[in-house]
Design a protein around this nucleic acid. Structure first.
Lengths: 237, 237
DNA sequence: TTAATAGTGTCTTTCAGACAATATAAA
DNA sequence: TTTATATTGTCTGAAAGACACTATTAA
């Protein structure tokens, strides 16, 4: 038998394959807190519990795992997040009652304003503060996933400006610093924070300013590829 | 219908699920070079090509994805590597001719001596120098996987002593430094390398020495949890 | 002017790079 | 002793921490 024959006769259904889903831990920043998007499950199993947005891979629709993720997130939020990164793959016989299952988990970041409208109208999709999420009885092993995503986000906050993606396209440095502080859970030195961003030339000054109270702050925009930049030295934890 | 009924009636076979495999990029250090374990494929598809050790998840045997990996590695090498870490999950419709497939890739490290005997006897399992592997026509997308594993290993070498797992349980500092240099592809400053390891107290002096030529070097052993330690500052690339 | 917030100056501390100097073995 | 390798001393430089200082707005 040659390879063509083998492929032609190969039937996937002859082998038992695990269920494959993709899930996202989508973070945003709103009202001075870090929030995560959760969906109330409307079907068995785990009906009624909060769960991460996600779903089954569609062999016909999806061109890859990230495509599945983006399709699912678009269904829930109406938009595609500007930052998506694969986190970890969880698998085992007992994480889903339907059988041996795998979920490929992603971390995604988005500005709250960019999906505010579409979310408000759907009561089973909700932004919950990260601190509350940890106490909720989430579906499946989604609490483990959320925690791992947060751990990784903390690391990113220590050596990159990836967290900037929870903000709108333009933002001020004090805003960005506060995002980092909320993620890390610890105040940072203004000077250290600004110095390294300036030295690595990661942001562009838009020339505009924004004032709330006090002196107006300069508005910046991320430079192309700044998300890929890693400082060689971490901030202190 | 309640949850029990739902689960009882749920038939996975009614849904098309991707094929799920687990693959390992197993590194070791031998003859002053970094090597990777490859297996010559004896069956379709990609028959005759070199591929990463791995295989399908077994729903009956495996308690998780890492369990699949360890089972497969034990089949090929006879031993369980002391360091195993999930790397990335690759998935898509065209990476395997049999259909939409996923592979959960792991990086693993092992001392060459600990699996030398079992490998030597099997001609279709082989340690190949990393530099050669990159030029071989590997099966599936395994070249991408190997390259990503190496990138990650380079990073680890810059901020941790994880690479120590390619050495036997006891080793000298010059040996460890050379491992790092081979991985990074650049010479390192003796002093910097030793200083940080000493300050973080990652190794235990066994009291023994080993001499080849010149002054004998002290033999060290990794301290418990040293693999989890990350320096806050990277070495220069 | 004062209150509030943004942004800077500058000294200290930490740790890696560079490289010379010393130590310990075998031949 | 010489050669080879291991190990340490120490100066320099880069970048973060600490914290006081100045700048810019509104009321």
């Amino acid at each position: 038998m040659n390879e063509e024959d083998y492929i032609a006769r190969y039937k996937k259904r002859n082998f038992d394959a695990p269920l494959v889903t993709v899930d996202a831990v989508l973070f945003t920043y709103h009202e001075n807190t870090l929030k995560t998007l959760l969906v109330k499950r409307s079907a068995y199993p785990e009906k009624g519990k909060w769960a991460l947005p996600g779903g089954f891979v569609s062999e016909s629709e999806d061109d890859g795992l990230e495509a599945t993720l983006i399709r699912k997130l678009k269904e829930k939020t109406g938009v595609i997040p500007p930052y998506v990164e694969q986190l970890y793959t969880f698998g085992g016989p007992s994480r889903d009652r339907r059988g041996w299952s795998i979920t490929v988990a992603y971390t995604a970041l988005i500005a709250h304003q960019s999906c505010e409208i579409s979310i408000d109208t759907v009561s089973d999709v909700n932004w919950l503060p990260f601190s509350k999420v940890c106490q909720l009885p989430l579906a499946f092993d989604h609490l483990d996933i959320v925690n791992r995503a947060h751990e990784r986000l903390v690391q990113k906050a220590l050596y990159s400006i990836v967290p900037a993606y929870v903000l709108p396209e333009t933002f001020t440095l004090p805003e960005l610093q506060h995002v980092h502080e909320v993620i890390i859970g610890k105040p940072l030195q203004k000077k250290s924070f600004r110095r390294r961003i300036e030295q690595a030339n990661l942001l562009v000054d838009t020339g505009e300013k924004r004032a709330e109270k006090g002196r107006p702050a300069a508005l910046y925009r991320m430079r192309e590829d700044s998300a890929a930049y890693n400082f060689i030295r971490n901030l202190e934890l």
